[in-house]
Amino acid sequence: MSDETCPGVAPEEPAAFRRERSFRLASVSWAMPALIFLLIFLVLPLLANIARSLPLEDPFQHYARLLGDAYYLGIVRQTIKVPALTAVACLIIGYPVAYFMVRHAGRWNALIVFLLIAPLLTSTIMRTFGWTVLLGRRGLVNAWMSDFGMIDKAVNMVNTEWAVYLGLVHVLSPFMVLSVSSVLQGIDRRLEESAQILGAGRLRVFLTITLPLSLDGIATGCILVFVLASGSFLSMLLLGGGKVTTLSLLIYQQFTLTQDIGFAAAMGNVLLLLSLICMAIQLRFLRRRGV
């Protein structure tokens, strides 16, 4: 991050500097293929998308509709609310797991990391679809609950808001655990021990030392989960049954059903803006810490 070497033109640079400079030049040219790839397949399509969202006859009609119409504004609000709540839920579930992993798991740590990552190798569709099997009217959960006499009649659990959150949290909580645990790992235990010897009990140590020092991981995890949740539509599509509509789901629908490509492009750009704001927040966070 911190780039101290200035591009000054001192005539007599030390040898080490010169070597570093030429190395840098080389590294920029090595990055060219990747840059060209990104230009063609990322930057140009994004620009095209912006152009598409601004039709010549009335450039801002799509944006006006999106942000003026109460229905669409509600969806934009939903697009912030659902990922935000998902991030909070992931944090509440993921932080203790990460803490346990780093502080108490010892040699089981590697196993837990494996168990966290392994599900990421199967497709999200499969994992989300699994919930419809479990939660369905004739699914495992209903069967158990009626076996134990907790319910008389099968309860509908799919196609509810709850199911959407369940699906999102399930898919995204590993990201939270991994980002929090990587930061927890880096906290020197002796800081906690110093606090303890200065008179702090376990809870005070956690609240005054461990938690503040892991804020970076919390922020990273929350932003990651937020961005991924706001971009995903599978949980809403498969588990929400129309009860939860966010921009990404709407884009999917606009594209496949209505074929209103200009409007879909405008929504895509709003979504992109949302993600960029998140990234900017995270960058600020990192910069403040001087990482």
């Binding site: 020197d188 002796r190 800081l191 021990e193 110093s194 606090a195 303890q196 010897i197 200065l198 008179g199 702090a200 009990g201 030392i209 020092l213």
Partner: peptide, 18 residues
């Protein structure tokens, strides 16, 4: 527990709260 012993301790790495 360590927090009830009324000790002072300095570690090699100082361990100041960053």
């Amino acid at each position: 527990a360590p927090n009830r012993r009324g000790l002072g301790m300095v570690f090699q790495s100082y361990s100041l709260f960053p």
